[in-house]
Amino acid sequence: MEMYTCLMHSKYQGKNSYSVQSLSEHDMLLIKEWRNAQMDVLRQNRVLTDEDQMRYYQQVVEPSYTDNETKIILVSFLKDEQLIGYGGLTNIDWIAKRAEISFLVDPTRTLHPAQYKQDFLQFLDLMCTIAFCELQFNRLFTETYDIRPLHISILEQFGFRLEGRMKQHIYIRGEFVDSLLHGYLKEYWKDEK
């Protein structure tokens, strides 16, 4: 298993049999299927091919493992040791000590709101542990298209605060949609722990 040189571990164990580990090359083709099935919620405007996905892994993900100031830390998200999603910390700014949270699960899990909520809350907890306890970051943020009320409500339940709305920022299914920005500071994490 690959390991990010900027992290102390290649795998992090959460509660309720959830864990994250460095993104595995053998997970990439399944992740490609999930991405293609959920393009409306991603910054992705075309269907990915196997070649696209493997090229991304080889040219972007693999080199990030040995870069002490990588712009991305991507992880496979597991439940009971089975891959259920992926995501991580992206758009990392090491000087400002901030990162954007990326998260995507198997689309069948999104059909069950209670399950999706549990998955997403556990993932956020793991990302905060890595970002605030290990990397000593100060801030995490997200951008969510305003077609995802459940996703937004989970972010806010966790403690992310709405910081802005970009009006008609993205074009989805024939209409312009707002994009919501949420932020979460290390001090919120300290207050909760």
Rank of each mutant, 00 (worst) to 15 (best):
K117R: 13
D178K: 09
L155F: 10
H169I: 04
L121H: 08
L162G: 05
D146Q: 11
S153Q: 14
F176A: 10
D119M: 08
F132S: 09
A131H: 02
T142V: 15
R165P: 00
K117H: 07
V105Y: 04
L140I: 10
T142W: 01
R161W: 01
I154V: 15
C133Q: 12
R165T: 14
L150R: 04
D178T: 06
I154G: 00
E134V: 02
P149N: 11
C128G: 09
L135M: 08
L121T: 07
T108R: 14
P149G: 12
A114T: 08
L181N: 02
M127N: 04
L140W: 03
L126T: 03
F176C: 01
G174H: 10
Y171Q: 12
C133F: 06
G183P: 06
I130C: 01
G159A: 01
G159V: 07
L140N: 08
D106E: 09
Q118T: 13
I147R: 04
T144P: 02
R109L: 15
E175W: 02
E156F: 00
A114G: 06
N138R: 14
T144H: 11
P113Y: 00
L162C: 12
H112L: 13
R173Q: 15
E134K: 05
L155C: 02
F123S: 02
F137W: 05
C133M: 10
E163I: 10
I147H: 03
Q122V: 01
K117C: 08
Y145G: 02
E175R: 15
T110L: 13
D106N: 15
L124D: 03
L111S: 14
E143H: 13
E143M: 12
H169S: 15
Y116N: 13
F132A: 08
D119P: 05
H182Q: 12
F176N: 06
V105H: 10
I170K: 12
M166F: 14
P113I: 02
L111E: 15
L150N: 12
K117L: 00
T110D: 05
T108K: 15
A131V: 08
Y171S: 09
C133G: 07
L155M: 09
L150Y: 02
L126G: 03
L181P: 00
Q115R: 12
Y171W: 11
R109F: 12
L162K: 14
K117T: 13
F137I: 05
I154Y: 03
D146I: 01
L155V: 01
Q122C: 10
H151A: 11
Q157N: 06
P107R: 02
I130M: 01
P107H: 04
F160A: 04
R109D: 11
P149F: 09
F132T: 05
L135T: 07
M166C: 01
Q118A: 10
